[in-house]
Write a protein that binds this DNA or RNA. Structure first.
Lengths: 266, 266
DNA sequence: GTGCGCTCTGAGAGCGCCCTGAGAGAGCTT
DNA sequence: AAGCTCTCTCAGGGCGCTCTCAGAGCGCAC
């Protein structure tokens, strides 16, 4: 759900294509394709190491009207999730590199709202328990028919909270999780993916010291073994963009400890 | 004083945090509104001088499953915050006695984790800037619909996470483990990492004699073999910062024994 | 008072954390 | 291929922080 921002002229926001607030309870607006959420096609990420499977699912889901992306292993899945921002992930439990269960756990940690549909091997009852414990919303036993799959996908998407496009605020800084863009006061700020991920970490934990290890773990997914120069460089990028018009600093360095997002109190 | 507690017996709200498992494909269940944080109903304090407004918001939020308290002015708000320990405060910017912005600032100073949602008058663009600078997490322009309000409340509470952020207090001194910063009265004090570590030791053991050996062991991780000059120097740094505005001494020397954190009157 | 030893103080040196500018390489668009 | 954006690496350097040192201050015992 998008929130109307009262102040600024929304010349660009109008072109956004976002649904404005429906203030009355009786919203009988157009319901487009049944595969749509929030007025846009739902995004589905398919993760499986078998290309035959991913291709088949891609075709089937595309045919149903979903926007589909695929990934072939765990790392790929995590990366694509950040880029593609899917509403639902179809996840095979057997994966090379990172285990499907582990992927599920990380996805769930990263986004509590994300719908996750796990594919388990036949009769592997134990898998199902493990998978559900890891935060999957539903599972499907191979082999399955496409009808069953699309039905499950539909069911999961239907229960999705209508929103998750969120405006995270701190001081005069606003981060739009829908467009991945930021605004400081009235100034629009374009962010790259990594910059956005990093800033989001700060915005979700304002006034908290974030250690370099935590940040790299969250943003890059792994530890850098003590060399945090990448992080330092990206903090620099963020500061440059956030203070481009001479605004006071928001991301502060705590030498030897990490960084904090804090209001510019004198 | 009476606080509204959610009336509905929400048997499933106890399982909050766990996504209900839907094993059937045709799941039409409705997921209960997630009004809980940390496994209990979230507490919301509504502050407005218009009783019609507070009553309306109380009803709406109670219906959503929140525990609601109300306050009619700034002093009342600060008092109720201490008693009620809300997770979120809905705060009108126009208040008698103490201004809403000032209330916001004090609430924020008292608890960096508290979610604050400000209500501003229509088109008062300046207010929003002021409010956000004072530490509000979000604002809402009057008039608004209840739908919008509850959505915002939900969004704010969703991002609340259990954290180890803690405010350690002693006399007029507050140490924020989130930002590693200290405050004496209203004066903000920046600390280096070593200074912070040392002060934390004192704050965790107030009115206790701490031997030099203990302190160096804890802060520096090893013993200095009898030469405690580093410690003495850092005690000095702390004293300089903590007494910079002429405040009475808190860290006292016990010749031959060590140091104590003790209130000045004793 | 005198002497001793503990503590405080000011100044400064060195380390290393962090910032910075530049650029190579990957991926994508044209 | 060329151009672009984005990511990440690397080397250089500033300066914040830590710690040392020498000397002064001060409490305590005699």
């Amino acid at each position: 759900m998008t929130f109307d921002l009262p102040t600024q002229g929304r010349s660009d926001a109008a072109a956004e294509g976002e649904t404005p607030i429906v203030s009355s309870a009786m919203a009988t607006d157009i319901v487009p394709t049944p595969t749509a959420v929030f007025g846009r096609p739902a995004r589905v990420l398919v993760v499986d190491d078998d290309e035959n499977v991913t291709n088949m699912l891609r075709r089937a889901l595309s045919f149903e009207g979903y926007a589909v992306a695929t990934a072939r292993d765990g790392n790929d899945a995590l990366k694509k999730t950040l880029e593609f921002a899917p509403d639902l992930v179809v996840l095979d439990i057997m994966l090379p590199a990172i285990d499907g269960v582990e992927v599920c756990r990380r996805l769930r940690a990263g986004d509590p709202q994300l719908a996750i549909l796990m594919l388990t091997a036949k009769d592997a009852a134990a898998d199902q328990v493990v998978g559900l414990d890891a935060g999957a919303d539903d599972y499907l036993v191979k082999p399955f028919t496409l009808d069953v799959l699309t039905a499950r996908v539909r069911a999961q998407l239907r229960r999705k909270e209508p929103s998750e496009v969120e405006l995270v605020r701190f001081a005069d800084l606003v981060l739009d999780t829908g467009t991945h863009s930021a605004r400081r006061g009235t100034r629009e700020i374009a962010l790259t993916t990594t910059e956005y991920d990093l800033l989001l970490q700060f915005m979700r934990h304002p006034r908290q010291v974030l250690e370099k290890e935590q940040l790299t773990e969250k943003v890059w997914g792994y530890d850098f073994g003590g060399n945090y120069n990448v992080l330092e460089v990206y903090v620099r990028y963020l500061r440059q963009k956030l203070e481009a018009a001479g605004e006071p600093r928001l991301i502060h360095t705590l030498r030897g400890a990490g960084y904090v997002l804090r209001e510019p109190t004198a």
